[in-house]
């Protein structure tokens, strides 16, 4: 029994029918990235697949950034959460399909914005410095903003300044 086809979609949007699988997915939704506590790892698109057979559970997770220091932490959180009702839990780190910011679900983007973090854009961000200018301000929605620093307090964020509401803000860098 496998949920491969159902769960390949970003953010595990389609829910598996089996009750056991559903319970596992629900437990994964209780885990958050410690650096972005407002969205869970399923909404973030970090779970590529969950497979079960009679005795075993295999969770395929994919890292947001390869050097993310929270990776081992999250991997352990998954093991602990699913082990609450499963005996044998294996967590694999996989790169196919690779994580990209396109996998962050729409509700999660709204939560990021409410958190004060500008959500990733659809454009080819990272193509050049110009591509990181005029990122919409999460506070006032103005695009009259400037890039301050390509790198920020965590690997996934850059720092910007809003010329309209005169606030600095962080942007969840587009990665794809």
């Amino acid at each position: 029994m496998s949920s491969t086809d159902e769960s390949k979609k970003a953010g595990g949007k389609s829910r598996p029918r089996s009750k056991r699988l559903r319970t596992i997915w629900q437990s994964l939704e209780t885990i958050t990235d410690p650096e972005i506590p407002v969205i869970n790892i399923v909404e973030m698109g970090m779970i590529n697949d969950v497979r079960i057979d009679d005795e075993h559970v295999t969770v395929d997770m994919t890292p947001t950034f390869a050097g993310c220091p929270a990776l081992d932490f999250i991997r352990n959180e998954i093991r602990v959460a699913v082990s609450a009702f499963e005996k044998d839990v294996k967590v694999n780190v996989v790169f196919d399909p690779p994580w990209s910011t396109d996998r962050i679900t729409e509700p999660a983007r709204k939560k990021l914005k409410a958190f004060g973090l500008a959500p990733p854009t659809a454009g080819d961000c990272g193509a050049g410095q110009e591509s990181m200018e005029n990122i919409p301000c999460p506070l006032c929605d103005s695009t009259n903003t400037s890039l301050e620093s390509i790198f920020g307090p965590t690997l996934c964020r850059s720092i910007h300044y809003c010329n309209e509401c005169l606030q600095s803000f962080e942007f969840f860098k587009t990665v794809r």
């Binding site: 950034f65 790169f95 990209s100 990272g126 050049g128 410095q129 390509i150 790198f151």
Partner: peptide, 23 residues
């Protein structure tokens, strides 16, 4: 394939380093 998949992932991060240098 495993190395190709990994390389695609790492490229998506590397572009920000290049952007830094180009700046």
């Amino acid at each position: 394939v495993p190395l190709a998949q990994l390389a695609r992932k790492l490229s998506s991060e590397k572009k920000y380093h290049l952007m830094h240098g180009h700046m």
